[in-house]
Amino acid sequence: MNMMQDSEGFSIRIPAKTQTKEPVYIQARMSGSSRNRIVVEAGSSANIVIRYLSEEEHLNADELNEVLLEDNASLNIVLLQRLNLSTHLKTHTTVSQAADSMVKIHYIALSGENIDNSLQVNLNGKNAEHTAHGLSFTEGTELMGNHVRIVHTAPECRSNQLFKHILSGTSTGNFTGQIIVNKEAQKTTAYQRSSNILLNSKAKMNIQPQLEIYADDVKCSHGATVGQIDSEAVFYLQTRGIDKQDAEKLLLCAFAEETLEGINIENIKSEIIQYVNQKLITS
């Protein structure tokens, strides 16, 4: 693996036919703009965790990630965002996937005044697969958005989007999910789901699904829900001896954990679950 990091950003290149077992951990730069590049060459695989942490107040960061997967390459990438409550972060990631490649990307946004993640995926080679999951917690006046655009250019590709927001206070969440299936992309499978829970009636969630399908042999679906914690489920748990608060926490945890499916770095997954638990105690 080749890696370099300078004032502009970082660059990672996994040479062909290399299976990197140990995950790569990267600390994102939290001020100004940076430009990063990840290339996974043919037949290789990599696990990457990008941590976004801000200690100082009023930081403003803008990040551009360019991700390239060659034939039969695979990448599991987690963007873990725990920012100071006065920090603004904008990430824009473009992913290009060649034939038989696979990407799983997880956006975990736990805190920050304003976080905006956008993802553009191009499935350029046959039989490529892309999974994009997101989990965002907002409280107070925080604002978080996920904007996904997946373009199916080649046939027989699969894409799957699952984005969830848990919102309290007067916070706001935004989700824009676009699926574009070009005429040549026959036998596409593309799913998109946005599920959201408002813990406070003053919190707000905006959802914009958008499907543009130009091929005729495709399986596509999208669904969006905004709701509260299922009171019937809370009562069911209560009748078994579990206190209301614990019941609600259990349900929210279960709701959140669905988005963590596919993270194959166990210690990162448990770290996130721990943060989620902490979050739910205070919210």
Partner: peptide
């Protein structure tokens, strides 16, 4: 009976019994 996705029977019962 209520369906509770994501909460396993074992975890649910362990919590209930221990509470």
């Amino acid at each position: 009976p209520v369906e509770i996705p994501g909460v396993s029977m074992a975890n649910f019962l362990k919590l209930a019994i221990n509470e």
